[in-house]
Each structure stands twice: as structure tokens, then as C-alpha cells.
């Protein structure tokens, strides 16, 4: 390398990075600016996330304090209604019973509440954004790279700023999970709407549908299978991320899992893995 460099001016050989002192200054001002921002808006942020906190607590209380048999019955009913498949239903019962037997029922309920709230938020946020993207090329060209960043960035990287803004607790965990789980919802809603048969859309226009009628009667119903696939992905990703979010104070199975990492006891970790699988079945 050195031999090549001898033919070239220094500037083109070694990348002219900004020097350390300047970098340090930039870093400091960014940090301080950020901190000042957070400090100024602390109250506003708290008010903003209050409803999330309330909803999450409510659901968690409901799941944890209800008798296990009620929860199990509700679950079985949902699974059977959704799948119409006896095998999946029995599988659910067996795995839930095993979870209960190994003493992780309460943790599972906490996780379940978390995943439910995250999924609901992801759907609520994701579908409108997906629709917006499908309707406007410009929106798509702006949002797509943002989604790319959200999906490529390791979750730990944005977990830290989220904690800086919202502090330690359930809500920052929730927000981190939603950031992680919402991209497939947005992408698949967009894709589903874009794939709707052009002739059917033309027919809807020819009969004089308004934009809303066209969305409600044609685009959403025809995109529904793809949107459902998006919801499925979102649930899976929420579940995966809840484990990571346990590091910032989200309770439930993730906490067990984090503890398990510190004491590598094989049977414990195996049980947790098994349970994580069982959880997925409920959706």
C-alpha cells in the first residue's frame, strides 16, 4: 500500500478525517443540545406518553389478575375461531399449561400484554402510513429509506436515545418495540394496496367512487391478505424485541431471559426458548 501511496498526494491516499478536537466539540454540542431538549420537554413528553402507560398497565393488570383458566379459555376461543384447526388449538392449550407448570405464567401475561399493546400501536401507526405511501410516490420515496434505516439499525442503538428521552420503564421499551416492529406493517400495507387489480380500481372510479369509498370498498378489502401478513410479521417482531426491551425495564419473560443470560443454566434457557415458541402460536 505504501508503494501506491508514494505516487499519490497525501490527501488522496489517507482519508482527510476531521480532527479529534473538532469531532469532540461537535459531539459535545450535539449531546448537550439533545439533553437540553429533553430537559425542556420532559413534562410534555410525560403527558404525551401517559395514555400509553395507562393502557399498558390496564391490560397487564387484566391479564395478570384474571384467573388463569379465564385467560386460557379466551385464548383457546380466539385460536380456534381464527384457525378452525383442532391441532393448533390443542397445541396452544398444551404449551400454555407447560408454561404455567414451570411457574412462568405471570411473566408470560406481562409479555402478552406488552406484545398486544405494541401490535395495536404498530397497526394504528402502520396502516395509515402504508396507505399514504401507496397513494403518493413522493411519500414512498421519503418513507422507504427511513424504514430501511429502522430495519438495519441494531435495536440497541436506538434503545439508548429512547431511554434518554423517556427514561427507564415500560413506555420506552414499548416505543423501542414499536420502532422495530412497525416497518413490515407499513411496507406490506403499501404493497398490498399497490397490488390491487387496476381494472377493479378503474371500475370503482367509473361508478363515481370518492377517494374514501375507493379505499374502503376496494383497496383495503383487496389488500387485506397482504395487510394480514404484515400484522403477523409485526407480532413476531414485537415478541422478539420485547426480550431486548427488558433491558430498559420492561418486565415479563424478557427479564427472565436477561437473568438467564447471566446464569447459563441450561434447563432454564431451554424452557424460555420453548415458551417463546409457545407464545407465537397464540396469534
Amino acid at each position: 500500500m505504501a508503494s501506491v501511496c508514494s505516487f499519490l498526494p497525501d490527501l488522496l491516499c489517507k482519508f482527510p478525517a476531521i480532527d479529534d478536537t473538532t469531532i469532540r466539540m461537535i459531539r459535545k454540542s450535539v449531546d448537550e443540545g439533545f439533553k437540553a431538549l429533553v430537559r425542556t420537554y420532559t413534562n410534555a413528553i410525560d403527558v404525551l406518553v401517559q395514555p400509553l402507560q395507562v393502557f399498558l398497565n390496564f391490560l397487564e393488570n387484566l391479564f395478570v389478575s384474571s384467573p388463569w383458566i379465564v385467560i386460557l379459555a379466551a385464548m383457546v376461543a380466539i385460536v380456534y375461531y381464527g384457525s378452525r384447526d383442532m391441532r393448533i388449538t390443542i397445541g396452544t392449550i398444551v404449551s400454555m399449561l407447560l408454561i404455567g407448570l414451570v411457574g412462568l405464567w405471570n411473566d408470560t401475561m406481562v409479555t402478552l400484554a406488552m406484545v398486544t399493546v405494541c401490535t395495536l400501536i404498530a397497526i394504528l401507526v402502520g396502516i395509515p402510513i402504508g396507505i399514504l405511501m401507496a397513494r403518493s410516490e413522493r411519500a414512498q420515496s421519503v418513507i422507504n429509506p427511513i424504514l430501511d434505516v429502522m430495519q438495519t439499525m441494531p435495536s440497541f442503538v436506538y434503545l439508548i436515545p429512547v431511554v434518554m428521552i423517556f427514561g427507564i420503564g415500560k413506555v420506552p421499551g414499548l416505543i423501542a418495540v414499536v420502532i422495530y416492529a412497525v416497518p413490515p406493517m407499513i411496507r406490506l400495507t403499501n404493497l398490498g394496496i399497490r397490488l390491487v387489480d387496476k381494472e377493479v380500481l378503474e371500475a370503482a372510479d367509473a361508478f363515481g367512487s370518492s377517494q374514501w369509498q375507493r379505499l374502503k370498498n376496494v383497496q383495503i378489502p383487496l389488500a387485506l391478505p397482504t395487510i394480514m401478513a404484515g400484522i403477523n410479521q409485526t407480532i413476531m417482531m414485537s415478541l422478539a424485541m420485547v426480550v431486548v426491551a427488558s433491558m430498559v425495564g420492561v418486565g415479563g419473560l424478557g427479564l427472565q431471559r436477561a437473568a438467564g443470560d447471566q446464569q447459563p443454566v441450561l434447563h432454564r434457557r431451554l424452557l424460555q426458548r420453548f415458551r417463546a415458541r409457545g407464545d407465537r402460536h397464540h396469534f
Binding site: D197, E199, V200, E202, A203, N217, V218, P221, L222
Partner: peptide
């Protein structure tokens, strides 16, 4: 329409 363009659902 040529390809009917009915709403499948």
C-alpha cells in the same frame, strides 16, 4: 369491462 372487474370479496 373486458375482464369484468367485479369485486372478488
Amino acid at each position: 369491462f373486458q375482464k369484468f372487474a367485479l369485486l372478488p370479496h
